[in-house]
Amino acid sequence: MDISIQRLFTFLFSGFAIVPAILSSFCGNNKIPYGIEVYKNGQPSLLCSKPSCFEKTYADCDERAIRSSCDSNTSWVGGFDKGLGSFQPLYVQCCEFENLPALTDPLYSSVIIRPGEYFEGEELTDKYGDDVLSFDLITNIKMIRDDVNSTIAYKIDVRRFHCNRLVRPKHYKPSTWP
C-alpha cells in the first residue's frame, strides 16, 4: 500500500474514534451541570462542576442517557447522548435527588441556546469568596427545531440551589463503651 494512502486511512479512522466522545457529555452522579455550550455545528456540550457545599452529596442517576427529557421536579440533567446529524434525537441521563424541590428555586424556564451560543450559571459566594452560598444547575434540556435559522437549538430549565438549605448529617462521637 502506498504510504500516502496508508496515512489517509490512518487519519480517517483515527477521526472516527474521536466522534463518539464528542457526541455525548456526562457530569456523573456527584457533579452538577451549570452550563451548556452549543458549537456552530449544533453539537451541545455540558459544563460540569462540584460546588464545595455539594461535595458529599450524590444523586441517583440513570445508568445511561435513555430519556427524552428530565421533567421531574426532583431531577437534573446528568448527561446526554446525541447521534450524528440534526435529525437524531437527544437522549438525556436524569439524576434524581429527592430533596431538590426544598433546596432549589426555579430561576429560568425555556431558555433557548442556539449554535454558537452558551449558557453559564452563576456560583454565588460569601463576601470573602470562601463559601459557596448558591449555584445554578440545569434541570432539563430538550432539543428543538429552530425554524428561524433552519437549525436545531436546545431549550433548558435552570434552578438555583441554596447551600444554606442543605442539612448536613450530625457527626457522632465514637462510643467509649465498654
Rank of each mutant, 00 (worst) to 15 (best):
residue 102 A to I: 10
residue 77 V to M: 01
residue 60 D to Q: 15
residue 32 I to Y: 05
residue 125 T to V: 15
residue 123 E to K: 10
residue 100 L to G: 03
residue 16 F to K: 08
residue 35 G to N: 07
residue 47 L to R: 05
residue 130 D to E: 09
residue 93 Q to H: 06
residue 74 T to M: 02
residue 17 A to Q: 08
residue 16 F to N: 09
residue 105 D to L: 03
residue 127 K to Q: 05
residue 144 I to R: 02
residue 17 A to L: 15
residue 125 T to G: 01
residue 65 A to N: 05
residue 88 Q to K: 13
residue 126 D to N: 05
residue 80 F to K: 06
residue 85 G to P: 09
residue 139 T to R: 07
residue 77 V to I: 08
residue 128 Y to E: 15
residue 15 G to S: 13
residue 105 D to C: 00
residue 24 S to N: 14
residue 51 P to M: 13
residue 118 Y to L: 14
residue 85 G to A: 08
residue 38 V to G: 00
residue 101 P to A: 10
residue 51 P to N: 11
residue 41 N to F: 09
residue 96 E to I: 10
residue 66 I to K: 07
residue 73 N to Q: 03
residue 35 G to T: 04
residue 94 C to S: 08
residue 130 D to Q: 12
residue 126 D to I: 04
residue 33 P to L: 05
residue 72 S to I: 00
residue 122 E to S: 13
residue 136 D to W: 01
residue 126 D to Q: 03
residue 63 E to D: 10
residue 115 P to T: 01
residue 85 G to V: 09
residue 69 S to K: 01
residue 27 C to Q: 10
residue 121 G to C: 01
residue 152 I to K: 01
residue 134 S to I: 10
residue 41 N to A: 13
residue 20 P to I: 10
residue 92 V to A: 09
residue 26 F to T: 14
residue 99 N to E: 10
residue 74 T to I: 04
residue 23 L to P: 01
residue 26 F to N: 14
residue 136 D to S: 05
residue 76 W to T: 04
residue 130 D to V: 10
residue 94 C to Y: 04
residue 100 L to M: 15
residue 128 Y to W: 14
residue 32 I to F: 11
residue 96 E to G: 04
residue 19 V to P: 06
residue 67 R to T: 01
residue 78 G to Q: 02
residue 147 D to W: 08
residue 84 L to W: 12
residue 61 C to Q: 02
residue 25 S to L: 09
residue 24 S to F: 08
residue 117 E to Y: 07
residue 141 I to V: 15
residue 123 E to Q: 10
residue 153 A to H: 00
residue 13 F to P: 06
residue 122 E to P: 06
residue 121 G to I: 03
residue 98 E to A: 12
residue 132 V to H: 07
residue 91 Y to M: 13
residue 56 K to L: 07
residue 67 R to C: 00
residue 69 S to M: 00
residue 142 K to V: 10
residue 125 T to A: 06
residue 75 S to W: 01
residue 54 F to L: 14
residue 65 A to D: 05
residue 27 C to A: 12
residue 103 L to M: 07
residue 68 S to M: 08
residue 112 I to W: 03
residue 43 Q to C: 07
residue 33 P to Q: 06
residue 108 Y to E: 08
residue 98 E to N: 07
residue 83 G to S: 10
residue 148 V to F: 04
residue 70 C to P: 04
residue 103 L to I: 13
residue 58 Y to G: 02
residue 109 S to W: 00
